[in-house]
């Protein structure tokens, strides 16, 4: 990763202090609603990109729940992330068809290429890695998704080039809702 790209990311990332100052307004409407915790977490995550500890502790206080209960919910749903997400999410299908036709090897190759494990984000904040169960393209297994793009019949040897194409994209396309 170039230093220039790293620098750009920093200016776009909210600090935790900024998150905390916005959090109150963001989740206010859910506070007294039964079952309001999950939607509040969703709103916070889509605004901040992830849910750092300080945010979760504040949500626990605001919602009169224990921190352990809030983290219990966060760790139950794979949707929630407690580390910053990369610009791109790579998801490797491990559904039955993909699994038997090399999905496992693809996953191993991605892990090696990015140097991260499932659920983690590269240090330069470019990629996060997840696994999925069937993206509905079994005929062309193994399948891998990068953001909304489906890549079929992925060959571990071609992975480097595939991922590099995303990395080269200009940062201006960054989506922050």
């Amino acid at each position: 990763m170039t230093e220039a790209l790293k620098g750009c990311m920093c200016t776009e990332t909210m600090t935790e202090a900024e998150m905390l100052s916005e959090l109150g307004d963001l989740t206010a409407e859910y506070r007294d609603k039964p079952g309001g915790l999950i939607p509040a977490l969703q709103v916070a995550q889509s605004r901040f990109g992830y849910l750092p500890e300080s945010v979760l502790r504040q949500i626990a206080k605001d919602f009169d729940k224990s921190y352990s209960e809030v983290t219990g919910v966060v760790s139950f749903y794979s949707f929630f992330s407690t580390t910053p997400r990369g610009r791109h999410t790579v998801r490797v299908c491990l559904g039955t068809a993909c699994y038997v036709r090399g999905g496992k090897e693809v996953l191993a190759a991605v892990r090696k290429e990015l140097g991260i494990d499932v659920g983690e984000t590269t240090e330069d904040q470019q990629f996060s890695l997840d696994v999925g169960r069937c993206f509905g393209a079994c005929g062309l297994a193994p399948v891998l998704m990068v953001d909304d793009d489906v890549h079929q019949r992925v060959k571990p040897s071609k992975l480097g080039a595939l991922l590099k194409a995303y990395q080269a994209e200009p940062v201006a396309e960054e989506v922050v809702a």
């Binding site: 729940k65 224990s66 352990s68 209960e69 983290t71 219990g72 760790s75 139950f76």
Partner: peptide, 10 residues
Amino acid sequence: GVGALQPQGR
């Protein structure tokens, strides 16, 4: 009424 222990993960 403390809630220190809760199931984590799934």
